[in-house]
Simulated assay, not measured.
Amino acid sequence: MTRPTFSDIARHAGVSTATVERVLNGRGGVRPPTVEKVVAAARALDYPRRLPEVHRGLLRVEVLLVRPETDFYHRLSRAFERIAATLDPTVRVHRTFLKEADPESIAKRIASREQRRAGMILAVPDHPSIRAAVAGLPPGMPIVHVVTRAHERIGELIAIDNYAAGRSAAMFIARMERRPGTVIAISHHIYEVHRARMRGFADYMAAHAPEGLVFRWIGFSHDDRRLAGDRLFEAFNLWPDLVGLYNAGGANTGLVEALRRHPRGRELFVVGHELSEATEPALREGYVDVVLDQAPEAQARRALDLMLRRIGLLDMEPDTRPIRFVTVTAESL
């Protein structure tokens, strides 16, 4: 293999050849973030020369997440951890869990200047304080949103097509539930992704539900397991003809517990999200019929690839189409 040239390193880092020469020959006059990109590019290309150790580990990508108790965010965090271990040692991926119910603390962390960052990956709610913090970040800092957008215009989004997921859930119920009756949904209102799922679900049911199958009610659970179970019991009491349930949010554990407790729990056609310790046994036991898994491992991989591209460490532009969600039934486990 031929030795990489300054031009190769410059192309990889997205800088000029003169900048590469100044960095690698120690001539100074280059901003630290640019120095970091050049050194990281030289390492990635196996440039056969000792590089300054002071630059090792200076490309810090900060990942902010919420709700570590949920299966989805736990899987997402572990995926970031595994992928980070395979990256060049000049790249550090720092994960932090913050409280979903405390948007001011999330905004404060986003706005913090205590640590220099090469970019940020955000898996946090949309809230005015958080949007303002994102808008106040230095111009040009790469921002990647995972799962949902924390700002409607700044940064790029890696997620499934949640509107399509909602339509898919409605299609399964409308085509596979042969009985007439009431269909309900349970959701978490603060995330745009859940609102998109509900729009897709409602639109499909309005256009394609067979006669007698009616979507009547949305219960908001705040993704709290106890509240989700209470909402389902409330629906059982309100509609004796209840035949279908779509859980557009989390709180799978609470809903599965409620289905097991209620004498009509096995009678519903149930579609939920995320293959987890709650939904997998529920699929096997017949309490849940279809799970739409949004592949957090694929989202983490795509988010880091996009971040590395934006900070100049990948030549190839990653696929930016929505992540494909996976349909799981008892027969496919």
Rank of each mutant, 00 (worst) to 15 (best):
S7P: 00
I9Q: 00
A10H: 03
V15W: 01
V15C: 10
S16C: 11
T17K: 14
V23S: 00
T34Q: 04
A44W: 04
A44M: 15
E62T: 07
R67H: 06
E69P: 01
F72S: 02
Y73G: 00
A85D: 14
D88M: 07
V93L: 10
R95F: 00
R95I: 13
F97S: 04
K99D: 15
P103V: 12
I110N: 00
Q115V: 14
I121Y: 00
P125T: 05
A133C: 07
A135Y: 06
V144S: 02
R149P: 07
E152I: 11
E156D: 11
D161A: 13
A164R: 15
A169W: 03
H188A: 08
Y191N: 08
H194V: 10
R195C: 13
R199A: 10
Y204F: 15
A209S: 12
W217E: 13
F220S: 06
L227H: 08
G229R: 01
L238F: 06
W239F: 15
L245V: 09
L245C: 08
Y246D: 04
G250A: 11
A251S: 13
N252D: 12
N252V: 03
T253Q: 09
E257G: 06
L268Y: 00
F269D: 00
E274R: 05
T279G: 01
L283A: 04
E285Q: 14
V288F: 14
V288L: 15
D289E: 14
D293N: 15
Q294A: 13
Q299D: 08
Q299T: 05
I311W: 04
G312S: 11
L313F: 12
D315T: 14
V328Y: 10
